[in-house]
Every structure is written in C-alpha cells, then in structure tokens.
Simulated scan of single mutants.
Amino acid sequence: MANKALIIVDYTVDFVADDGKLTCGRPGQKIENNIVGLAEQFVADQSWIVLAVDRHEKGDRWHPETKLFPPHNIAGTHGRDFYGKLETWYQKNRDYPRLYYMDKTRYSAFAGTDLDMRLRARRVDEIDVCGVCTDICLLHTLVDAYNLGYKLVVHADAAASFNQQGHDWALQHFKNTLGADVVGGE
C-alpha cells in the first residue's frame, strides 16, 4: 500500500476569489468542495497533507514572475489566505500532525524547498495533487515529482486554471507524458 501525500497547490484568495490579484475565478471556485473533501479524506485515512502556498515579496523586481504576472500572493496580505471553505478547514485542522504548510517562491512546490526531503523522511511514495493553476503550478510541481520518482495522482475535479485549453492540455500531459493517474473528471 502506498504511503500518500495530498499536495494542495495555491488555493488562495488571490488565485480564486473574484477580486483576487491573479484569479482563475469561477473555474477555481467550482472545485472548492472537492478540494476540502480530499483534505477530509486524507485526514480520515491519516495520510499526509501539504499546503503549498505561493509567496512573493512586495516590489521584488528580481523575481522572474514580475515580468509575467501582476503582483499576487504578497507576503502579509489577505491574498495569501486560503480561499473559502479551505480556510475554515485549515483553521480547524491546523494541528493535524501530518499537515505541512509551506511557502514556495516558484511554480513548483519542489523548487528551492525542502519538500522532497520531508516526503522521503516520511516514506511517501505517492503524491496526489489538486489546486490551481493546472497548467502552471500543478504542471511544474508534477514534472518535478515525476523526475524525483513519485507515483502521481491528479484529481481533475479538484484542479482548475484561468485557461481552459491549458487545463485540458495539462491533464492530458499528466496522463500521457508523466504517467499520472488522472481521476475524477467531469
């Protein structure tokens, strides 16, 4: 039996709320219950949960995203709070011993972080991924996880993007190029 970890990527106000700084809007809002349901399931199974949250510094002109996107998920702002029911779930479960909240400063949750080391120390060999955006941060996280040798599961009904074409392409890429199990489609 696999030792699993659920990685919830960037499900924050700035990426999901109508007034978020870089929102995917309605597609991201529609997956709210599915993400919280997965989190509840992983707690019930006593599995690991990683909350990977994008973090940027105000006025950081050196970060490569500065030229690509408007400022978002700025440290110390409400935009970094979890969106909707996930924030409520997080407040209720923040002491769950298998929960790891982590900041990330690149698309991938593995780039420049200790995530791989933490997962290996806990003998995790399967990574389940959900969140936003499918064709950006989920894509880069999954490519890194693939290159590190993890078994991959993508929850399609708990992933979204502001680009439907990119979302659809990424799901096919996960399945056909990374060998991921893509589950829970529409």
Rank of each mutant, 00 (worst) to 15 (best):
F69I: 14
L171E: 02
T134E: 08
T23I: 13
E65K: 11
G179H: 05
T88Q: 12
F174L: 08
K67G: 09
V153T: 12
K175Y: 03
R120F: 00
K30Q: 12
R61F: 10
R94I: 08
P70I: 15
V16H: 00
S108T: 00
A75F: 14
M117C: 12
A44N: 08
G185V: 13
N3W: 00
R26G: 05
T177A: 11
V124Q: 06
A160P: 08
D19R: 11
G112R: 11
G79H: 07
T141M: 11
F42Q: 05
D14S: 10
D95K: 14
F15T: 01
M1E: 10
S108R: 13
V143E: 03
Q164K: 12
D168F: 00
L51R: 03
W62Q: 14
L152Q: 04
D19M: 10
T66W: 13
V129C: 04
L51H: 01
D157E: 05
V153I: 08
A5C: 14
I127Y: 01
Y83M: 06
A75G: 01
V50K: 08
N176K: 13
I7D: 04
A109T: 01
I74G: 08
I127Q: 03
V50C: 07
V143G: 04
R120V: 14
W169G: 04
A75H: 13
D18H: 06
W89Q: 08
P64R: 14
N93A: 10
R122H: 09
A109R: 05
F110D: 03
E32M: 11
R122E: 11
N147A: 10
P64F: 15
A156D: 01
Y146Q: 07
T134D: 05
M1W: 07
V53H: 02
D54Y: 00
L86G: 01
K67D: 11
L6I: 02
T88H: 10
T88D: 15
G25P: 05
T66L: 09
F69A: 11
D114A: 14
A2S: 15
H140W: 10
Y146N: 13
N93R: 06
A75M: 13
F42W: 07
V183E: 07
I136H: 06
T134H: 08
V153W: 01
K175L: 10
H78P: 01
E57V: 15
A170R: 02
M117E: 14
L115E: 01
F82A: 04
L51I: 10
L115N: 07
D18A: 13
I35N: 02
M1P: 09
A52G: 07
Y11H: 03
R80Q: 04
A44M: 11
E57G: 00
V53M: 11
K30L: 15
V50R: 10
I31Y: 00
F82N: 01
N147M: 12
H63S: 13
L115A: 09
D18Y: 00
R122T: 03
K85V: 06
L51P: 01
Q164F: 01
S47E: 15
G131A: 14
I31S: 07
K104Q: 10
D45F: 08
L178D: 02
C130F: 05
E32Q: 13
C137T: 03
D81P: 02
V154F: 04
Q164C: 03
